[in-house]
Amino acid sequence: MHTLNFKPKAFLFDLNGTMINDMKYHTMAWRSVMNEDLGANLDFETVKKEMYGKNHEVLARVFGKGKFSDEEVKKLSFDKEKRYQEGYFPHLALIDGLADFLEKAKKRNIKMAIGSAAIPFNINFVIDGLKIRDYLEAIVSADDVTISKPDPETFLKAAAALQLSPDDCLVFEDTPKGVESALNAGMKSVVITTTHSIEEFEDYPNVLCFINDYHDLKLNTLF
């Protein structure tokens, strides 16, 4: 078994695609809004490539900056999140092995936080729906940062909230942009391969390992 030569004091989790495998439902919701409401006629894969950052950033990438007013962005974002929650709710579940992993970390006094580009509306939907709030000492959402990943602000704020230095934190991520954010924050990362292939992370020296889920025995060496 590959041994991870690192004993972090905190685990920082991205949310979507990292704690829950829900990115398909975000893409479906955005595609519905973009095609049915905005007449974009985009296929699933095209929409999927734009699924990172804050909602207003997604809209700006796809339709151009300044296309929508602040009120329009707010309404489109709400409609998208409502469709996402309606679509994903019947499938709401932690990624395999994560429930036990969280419990083990808590017993070992490892601090845990979420650092996500999701809005509080969606974060609360997940953590309260799955009853995992008690494991988390901090939550950094889209509303808490000025610049989205790959800027390091999200993870640096999470580390600060836990009163730990960045090099004591290990980031769990599923996207290259998220791993780049961890790198920019001076943090190591574990990649879960829910949404991207291993080859897409070859430029990031901070990746300790790749896992399919949290049953992976390599994770035992972190404790």
Rank of each mutant, 00 (worst) to 15 (best):
Ile127Asn: 03
Gln163Cys: 05
Ala93Val: 05
Asp143Met: 10
Lys65Met: 15
Glu71Ile: 09
Glu72Thr: 13
Ala117Phe: 05
Glu86Arg: 10
Glu137Gly: 13
Ala160Tyr: 11
Asn41Arg: 13
Arg108Gly: 05
Ile123Ala: 08
Asp43Glu: 12
Lys106Tyr: 13
Ile139Cys: 11
Ile119Ala: 13
Glu86Asp: 11
Ile127Ser: 04
Asp168Leu: 10
Cys169Tyr: 01
Glu103Asn: 14
Leu102Lys: 00
Val73Ile: 15
Gly64Asn: 14
Leu170Cys: 02
Ser77Ala: 14
Lys82Ala: 13
Thr46Asn: 06
Val171Leu: 08
Ser69Glu: 07
Ala99Pro: 00
Met51Tyr: 04
Tyr88Glu: 01
Lys74Trp: 05
Asn55Trp: 05
Lys74Met: 09
Met112Ile: 08
Leu92Ser: 08
Asp167Asn: 01
Ile95Gln: 08
Ala93Leu: 11
Ala160Arg: 10
Val73Glu: 13
Leu92Glu: 05
Met112Tyr: 04
Lys75Gln: 15
Lys65Gly: 14
Thr146Ser: 15
Ile132Lys: 00
Asp143Ser: 14
Asp167Ala: 00
Thr175Glu: 09
Met112Leu: 12
Lys82Val: 12
Pro120Thr: 02
Ser116Met: 04
Ala158Gly: 06
Lys131Thr: 03
Ala158Asp: 06
Glu45Trp: 13
Ser77Asn: 14
Phe78Pro: 00
Phe121Val: 06
Phe155Trp: 00
Val47Phe: 02
Arg83Thr: 04
Thr46Leu: 09
Arg108Ile: 07
Leu76Asn: 09
Leu130Gln: 03
Ser148Phe: 06
Glu103Arg: 06
Pro152Ile: 00
Asp43His: 14
Asp79Tyr: 07
Lys48Ile: 06
Leu130Pro: 03
Thr175Met: 12
Phe89Thr: 05
Ser77Ile: 05
Phe78Val: 09
Glu103Phe: 07
Ile123Pro: 08
Glu45Val: 08
Asp96Trp: 01
Gly115Val: 01
Ser116Trp: 00
Leu102Cys: 03
Val126Met: 01
Ala117Val: 03
Glu45Ser: 13
Ala113Ser: 11
Glu71Trp: 05
Ile123Tyr: 11
Gly97Tyr: 11
